[in-house]
């Protein structure tokens, strides 16, 4: 990481612009896209807020309003929708728990919401007790993303005992491929996003011994392309969000040194929008909050200066994880 201070402006982290960009996200109600993406509102809040914490501006969004908004998305069954009026789903419920953990407000669930126990029950009830995997909601779509989400949120709530961890672990093992990677379900092709969810879930379950570390690390480090960016599968284009899926997986198995970290830093920094703030999927494209958080989280894992350390399993600041897991224990 030597010599970063001497890099030209376009290769410095544009902290002030990113903070402003995230603050501006909820002021765009005169843009059609704002309404078309309402189904991602709660996830977007988690992405934006985590970005601000990593950028060391945790107070750039008002805490009380954040908590009020999160609680306004909760249903009587304990689950959360993306925004008021949206159906409950695992993906939003996980974001809700992550946000409350981030702003140290998990207790508000018992004070003003449906209670922590109901949230835990909503999540646990989505486990398929035969196969161990999880669906996203009552309509039944199953995916290892939901399994990971369940493990993530239940860990934050201190309620992992509600689910059959061994069965879930068996399911992940069934998703493994000969190349060391994991797919979305048994038989599916290895994919960096799914590898992250499976490796993180195995880490939470304390079963990293089941990972074929060298084979998986080899597959992951082959994802780096000459521009320095990482792709999600063989022969695909590089994309900033894979900086997170690939790199965090490498971090969990102790192999981030298998890729060229300086080159990846350069790729992420070149994908910044230096005027309007935010980070895009690759240089020159439109920034969005999804690529902003995963770009920043990637830089944080790479030890880039000026950023708080991120936890590779939970995608939350390490300080948050220490506080929450300390309490849960």
């Amino acid at each position: 990481m030597s010599g970063i201070q001497e890099l030209p402006d376009e290769l410095q982290l544009a902290t002030a612009q990113h903070v402003k960009y995230i603050q501006s996200l909820d002021t765009r109600k005169d843009e059609y896209d704002y309404w078309l993406t309402e189904h991602l509102r709660l996830n977007g809040l988690y992405w934006g807020l985590t970005s601000l914490y990593l950028l060391r501006h945790p107070d750039a969004l008002p805490r009380d309003e954040t908590i009020d908004f999160v609680l306004s998305c909760q249903h009587s069954n304990g689950g959360f929708g993306a925004a008021p009026g949206h159906d409950a789903h695992m993906l939003y419920t996980v974001s809700a728990v992550q946000i409350l953990a981030l702003v140290d407000a998990l207790d508000e669930l018992d004070k003003r919401g449906q209670g922590k126990a109901m949230v835990g029950k909503f999540i646990a009830d989505l486990q398929n007790r035969e196969t161990g995997t999880f669906s996203g909601d009552e309509w039944g779509e199953e995916d290892t993303r939901f399994l990971y989400g369940a493990f993530n949120a239940l860990s934050l709530l201190g309620m992992m005992h509600l689910v059959d961890v061994d069965k879930a672990v068996n399911h992940i093992v069934a998703c493994a491929n000969f190349d060391g990677g994991y797919g979305v379900s048994p038989g599916a092709e290895s994919h960096s996003g799914q590898i992250f969810t499976c490796v993180a879930a195995l880490t939470i379950a304390g079963r990293k011994d089941l990972i074929d570390v060298d084979r998986l690390a080899g597959w992951l480090s082959e994802r780096q392309v000459p521009s320095g960016g990482l792709n999600g599968r063989p022969e695909k284009k590089e994309d900033v969000c894979y900086s997170w899926w690939v790199l965090s997986s490498l971090a969990m198995i102790g192999r981030t040194h298998w890729i060229d970290r300086e080159k990846l830093i350069g790729f992420i920094l070149r994908s910044q929008d230096l005027e309007q703030g935010g980070i895009s999927d690759r240089p020159g494209n439109m920034a969005d909050v999804w690529h902003t958080i995963f770009g920043l989280a990637g830089l944080s894992l790479l030890g880039y200066p000026g950023l708080d350390a991120v936890d590779p399993v939970f995608c939350l600041p390490k300080t948050t994880m220490e506080r929450v897991l300390g309490k849960a224990r």
């Binding site: 059609y32 977007g44 020159g284 494209n285 909050v289």
Partner: peptide, 27 residues
């Protein structure tokens, strides 16, 4: 909120007409 392959444009550069069109679509 998660766009892929969309070229950068300047949000502030919308003309008043474009803004009105957006507002109609939103309504």
């Amino acid at each position: 909120m998660a766009s892929h392959g969309v070229a950068k444009y300047n949000r502030a550069a919308r003309t008043e007409e474009q803004r009105q069109q957006d507002l109609e679509k939103i309504e």
